[in-house]
Amino acid sequence: MTAADLLGAALLSALVLYALLGGADFGGGIWDLLASGPRKAEQRALVERAIGPIWEANHVWLILVVVVLFTAFPPAFAAICIELFLPLVLLLVGIVLRGASFTFRAYVGSGDRAQARWGLVFSASSVLAPIVLGVVVGALASGRLGAAAHGAATLAWLAPFPLAVGLFAAALFAYLAAAYLAVEAEGALREDFRRRAIGAGAAVFACAALAGALSWREAPLVFAGLTRRSWSLALHVATAAAALTAFAALFRGRVRAGRAAAALQVALIVVGWGASQYPYLVVPDVTLASASAPRAVQVALLWALAAGGAVLFPMLAVLFRVFKGERAFSVVDRSR
């Protein structure tokens, strides 16, 4: 393991956490858009209550990914920003509108038209941002960004595989959010989100199949990772087991177990992407090694991350403890 490998692992871990935490906040926005039925208002209120205190903290994982990327692998950051200029700008627009409108909606004063309008901006941008994020990931993995050497923005991301990954990301985030919200809701509202989690789980499956099939032609490295590497099978089995557990638990109403299994499933999917792309940061010509900053920088950064993490995780534990109750992360469904 070189310092670059360790930093690659740190980047991937931060992305996993961003998906599990920040991703679920976007998913909440998707359910705001799709709120329906007799408990429409309650669904929206629950989404707002669930993400209000924590979305800003969850969002910082993305910032951490950006700063670690440009500190440890500066040429990769430059290449990504040049080649994926347009989708990244769209991602920013989505992030800005989501965060700002969520806050405006909460503080603009209740009951008037302005509130409804900001609610719509909030939910629409919560759909936009995950799709674009998925497109960026799909484009990085696809191997179609060969223009790094030419230093030009490309439209290579505008292809079936990245777009399918975009849909996949949105489905994953919606699935996570529903699984989390089912735990936080009670009674009929819990039923609503339990059923939504199962539906979104089916959508995740469909999107995964689509992206997997497209990867055969459009993202050979990912496809090889999915099928032919030594660890492919083990990872598949683990992901499938997590998915089945999540489904079974959600069907039987064991929402805490379902939430844990769904989170594990999503984490394994992100890890699977990272592993299949290793050692590339941008397929096919930027690798961890080729983009590495001087070793002194990478080693210092590793120490900084270790020190920061030692402070950060206890702080996060306090946050979730305060807002998600004593058993914030429990997987055991007690009958009440």
Partner: peptide, 16 residues
């Protein structure tokens, strides 16, 4: 950023 990212990344990372 390609030039300076590694040099000034430390304060940005701690800022995170």
């Amino acid at each position: 950023m390609a030039f300076a990212g590694s040099v000034i990344g430390m304060p940005f990372s701690l800022e995170g």
